[in-house]
Design a protein around this nucleic acid. Structure first.
Length: 589
RNA sequence: GGGCACGUAGCUCAGUCCGGAUAGAGCGUCGGACUUCUAAUCCGACGGUCGUGGGUUCGAAUCCCAUCGUGCCCGCCA
């Protein structure tokens, strides 16, 4: 397939260059434009022209002559087009691709025997998940999925900030106020919507109450933080009561995406097991450590970071970054690689963390940080504390509602009479609605800023999830109709050379590239590359669908069999690509 | 003020890391295709100083410098 072909082309070209005594440092291999028949090309002749004392097209011709086609399996011909060398695929290339893609797990790469922990979301357990953070679970889950496909042994972690001042404020507010003190009813029947009201009430109190009242409250909050720092079991229980309830609700919300986790790692764990204390001791020993204004800090100027990192407060309590250092050393001890998905507002902390881990003697090459920019409202930032923002639950509900309307509208002017039942409609509404939200977010580069707008977030038009999902449904429709069934086994020894129209060839070539796309997306930690691929794939499939009948009586049996294999291969490709993106693949729509 | 990111068609985005063939999609607008394996589809037209100005190169949306605009960050919060 593509990866094998690329290796073959690289080797052949390198050999040719060596034989002609040209340098081999840059092979100039690239993917040609769509209207060129080759699958790979090289522009190396441009660079060699000066040295060869000949024009690029002549150099290209010389190279093409030098390549021995008999030694190549997946390349049938090398053609020149001006200065470009074009490598055309052989029958074996199509044959092998079709065979490989007949497997349901097509696109999964060989096991790498490497573990990687993907930490994402990690939103503070203070209240409902809002849309400002929704990019994190969606990108994070897709990053984890693509690594999984690429052969890594993936663990998904949610790091729970249960030790900070926020949680101390929340715990105090929860214990201090009663239902009667709260002005509003919960926005939704779920625990985090109920409890967040105490958090907001507490914060308002601290802003508005008299100095004495605030002082008394601060004393209690302080006691909670000191208790946690000292590893006091009773304090931990009190805080946990709030954390676990709120987190439980947030977990339910995230499961709707669905984003699920292998482990919820609490930061108090690294206080209670002494790791944070040990770490503080080691930090104090560093050359960069200074004791200024009663607090222990790290001066990182020499490492290109102007801002000091305070790691121990004047009251001897640790800070979030201190515990996170211990957390990361724990990850390094237990996994080969660590990936963290976090908002761009944490960028500076991310650099401080990385630099400090390095100073502590860790190999930070094993840590990769994926940054995304926040989703803001037209009127500004979303905040749990202030209660500004759109809840993710509301976005998902609205998406499902709009999708349901869409399904019902389309039901009326459907030509095919395939009686969708009530539960089919509901299933499609969920798959399409949630799929559209995820796809919209995962298909863009995470660094681009997004301003949330309902109509934009819920646009079901082409280049969105339903477009790709529809291709999957079409594949399933054909397979169902054929009698083989959607998951049925299609003959694997079909003759791929029968697939000779441009539409069939283009589709197979696109299928062939899928594993290479998975590899690249995993290497770059960029799941949006998969999304871009699904669009190209859907275009190609739809052309094939228009041009090539599969089940018609006019199609002879051998060709029909080959086309059915192509449809099965297409289905595996699109289903797996969608599953990486975390978007459902409907069997009917 | 300093650091980082982003700027591509009226709108939403690919392409930028790793420079190469006439800069690609979708939405919107206009026109066309359902007795056919699902029309959430397809075909055609219109639409671009790739923010701007320099530089490097045979070749720049892509690399370098400058500049403008937008976003994020610069707490003993997380």
């Amino acid at each position: 397939m593509f990866l094998s072909l690329r290796t073959e082309v690289e080797t052949a070209l390198e050999d040719a260059l060596v034989a002609l005594e040209y340098p081999t440092d840059d092979l100039g291999i690239e993917e040609p434009p769509d209207d060129v028949a080759s699958v790979l090309a090289s522009s190396v002749a441009f660079r060699l022209a000066g040295e060869a004392g000949a024009a690029p097209p002549q150099v290209a011709a010389q190279l093409a002559d030098e390549i021995d086609l008999d030694e190549l399996t997946y390349v049938s011909r090398v053609e020149t087009q001006g200065p470009y060398l074009n490598f055309l695929p052989s029958d074996a290339y199509f044959e092998t691709t079709l065979g490989a893609a007949t497997a349901a797990d097509y696109g999964t790469l060989e096991d790498r025997d490497q573990s990687v922990v993907v930490e994402h979301t990690s939103a503070n357990p203070t209240g409902p998940v809002h849309v400002g953070r929704a990019r994190n679970p969606i990108i994070g889950d897709a990053v984890a999925n693509v690594l999984d496909f690429a052969g890594y042994d993936v663990s998904r972690h949610y790091y729970v900030n249960d030790a900070g001042r926020q949680m101390a404020v929340f715990t105090w507010a929860y214990e201090t106020f009663d239902e009667d003190d709260l002005e509003d009813d919960p926005a939704r029947e779920r625990i985090e919507y109920d409890l967040v009201r105490y958090y907001r009430k507490g914060n308002r109190f601290l802003e508005n109450a008299s100095d004495e009242e605030v002082e008394a409250a601060e004393a209690e909050i302080d006691a909670i933080m000191q208790g946690l720092e000292a590893g006091d079991e009773e304090t931990y229980e009190r805080v946990s009561e709030v954390v676990d309830q709120v987190l439980g609700g947030m977990k339910e919300c995230l499961e709707r995406l669905p984003a699920e986790f292998d482990e919820f790692v609490k930061e108090t764990r690294f206080m209670r097991n002494g790791a944070t204390d040990d770490l503080v001791a080691r930090l104090k020993e560093l050359d960069e450590a200074v004791y200024e204004e009663d607090a222990w800090q790290l001066e990182l100027d020499d490492h290109g970071i102007d801002k000091n990192l305070v790691f121990l407060r004047s009251d001897d309590t640790s800070l979030y970054p201190t515990r996170d250092l211990a957390h990361h050393e724990w990850k390094f001890d237990n996994y080969d690689r660590a990936v963290t998905v976090l908002g761009e507002d944490h960028k500076l902390q991310a650099r401080q963390l990385r630099t400090t881990l390095e100073l502590l003697g860790n190999d930070t090459d094993q840590l990769r940080q994926v940054l995304y920019s926040y989703v803001n409202l037209p009127e500004g930032k979303m905040s749990t504390r202030r209660g500004t923002g759109v809840d993710l639950d509301d976005l998902l509900d609205e998406a499902i509602d709009r999708a349901r309307d869409e399904v019902e509208d389309r039901l009326d002017d459907r030509i095919r009479d395939d009686d969708l039942q009530e539960d089919d409609i509901e299933r499609i509404a969920h798959q399409v609605g949630i799929g559209a939200v995820r796809y919209d977010i995962v298909s863009k580069q995470p660094t681009k800023a997004i301003t949330f707008q309902w109509d934009q977030a819920l646009d079901f038009e082409a280049q969105s999830a339903p477009y790709v999902q529809y291709v999957h449904a079409r594949c399933c429709g054909i397979l169902e109709e054929s009698g083989f069934g959607v998951d049925g086994t299609i003959e694997t020894d079909v003759d791929a050379t029968l697939l000779e129209t441009p539409a069939e060839r283009d589709l197979l070539e696109t299928i062939a590239r899928f594993p290479a796309v998975v590899e690249e997306a995993a290497d770059d930690l960029e799941p949006h590359q998969i999304a871009t691929y699904t669009r190209e794939f859907a275009d190609r499939f739809n052309t094939f669908y228009r041009e090539c009948q599969v089940l018609s009586d006019d199609v002879d049996a051998d060709l029909q069999e080959a086309r059915l294999a192509l449809v099965a291969a297409s289905r595996h490709t699109v289903a797996n690509a969608l599953s990486i993106l975390g978007v459902a693949a409907p069997r009917s729509m």
